[in-house]
Design a protein around this nucleic acid. Structure first.
Lengths: 214, 214
DNA sequence: CTTTTGCCGTACCGTACGTTACGGTTCGGT
DNA sequence: ACCGAACCGTAACGTACGGTACGGCAAAAG
């Protein structure tokens, strides 16, 4: 027996991971209208166990979001961006991956939960999603941008500023429209096209061989 | 007596508007955790009246969102963008206004509500917010962009494509961070700076005097 | 074999809240 | 002055759901 709600680095039994996967599935299907009873039934476990492991409903939600975050985390960006070709393809692949994750059902569902719980005095799911969403993207991308700058391929003063512009060029209105329930068809080829366009526009703004209008 | 839930263009009594303002205030303060009782108390009306006018809780929420939308709607964009100066200032003012609305408490609250209700089978608040948010922005801005193109100041093929890029350059990660509860200080001068940067970058991408990389 | 532990299944409790019902009050119409 | 409609305030109902208690079982510990 171990309560997961205390320290953030509890090792999580395989059974617990199964339970969280069940909760994740229900979260995607039903949003935060999921009930403790439904989670228990889906996971074939008792409600008592849920409460023993996760404390309360909010603890279960938090653990579920963290569990998904731990799955996505750790796709390291390759730092081989020394020439223009590899930097370009690195940015493109980055944008492509990001859009793919962003438009996935799980991401949409989790962002919905976090948004609707933000501003509450409970455990802040928003902070977790923020940390594993935009902030994680920044942590992974900004080193790549700086490598590009040191290689003389990019020109900017504020790295965060450059990153946020890249973010805007990649995501545009896609995420908010998805969150607001707009039916959106975003095929894989469309995503790749978006990534290519965003990268191209980013180079038009921050490429060292054009104007360095940072 | 008139039920507002049926036709979308019910004229709304002044008393009803007062009630919706009260609901709006509670929505900003408490999110969708507001109760029918609290709305009745704040508006000094009976719950029976709430149900007679708006049908049910969801109808009240919908009416409230529509009421706020009807307040924001109808700030027409001036179509005087014939020379570069006025086009630039038009875009800047547009971006500035948009960021100001976007970062306001009411906008954040309403987007939160709409996001958390999206994907539900109830009346779609997401569609309303979408219609009065990004889509309204598009309807107002795209004509201005086309005027700029016809005046030879901008170069692009797909107007919607150009608009969405402008959207991305203006909003970047601001909205999602606000929705996720990130404490964010966005002063008026900062907003004006953002608007200026976005406009400048947009001209760098779509200005006719540079490359027309649409 | 006995004890302990951990968990399942289920019944149960308390409460919050959406919704309805009803008596009392205001107010415009005649 | 009278009537009826609209509305206020509040009490009451029904229910869904978070949280708890408890009996039974299987497996590990002793």
């Amino acid at each position: 027996m171990q309560s997961v709600t205390e320290a953030s680095d509890s090792p999580l039994t395989e059974r617990q991971r199964d339970v969280l996967d069940a909760a994740l599935g229900l979260l995607v299907e039903a949003g935060d209208t999921l009930t403790m009873t439904s989670v228990a039934r889906r996971a074939s476990c008792s409600k008592e166990t849920l409460y023993k492991w996760f404390g309360d409903r909010d603890g279960l939600l938090t653990a579920t979001v963290q569990w998904q975050a731990s799955k996505v985390r750790g796709i390291p960006a390759k730092r081989d961006g020394l020439d223009l070709i590899s930097l370009t393809s690195g940015l493109e692949r980055f944008a492509s991956d990001w859009l793919r994750v962003l438009s996935g059902k799980i991401s949409v569902a989790l962002n919905r939960i976090a948004v609707s719980h933000a501003g509450s005095d409970k455990r802040d799911l928003g902070a977790i999603v923020l940390e594993n969403g935009p902030f994680a993207m920044a942590r992974r991308l900004m080193p790549l941008l700086e490598v590009g700058r040191e290689a003389g391929l990019l020109a900017f003063e504020d790295t965060e500023e450059a990153f946020r512009t890249f973010f805007g060029l990649v995501v545009r209105d896609v995420q908010i429209r998805l969150l607001l329930g707009d039916r959106f068809e975003l095929t894989d080829v469309a995503i790749d096209g978006e990534a290519r366009r965003a990268t191209q526009q980013f180079f038009a703004l921050y490429g060292a061989y054009t104007n360095g209008a940072g």
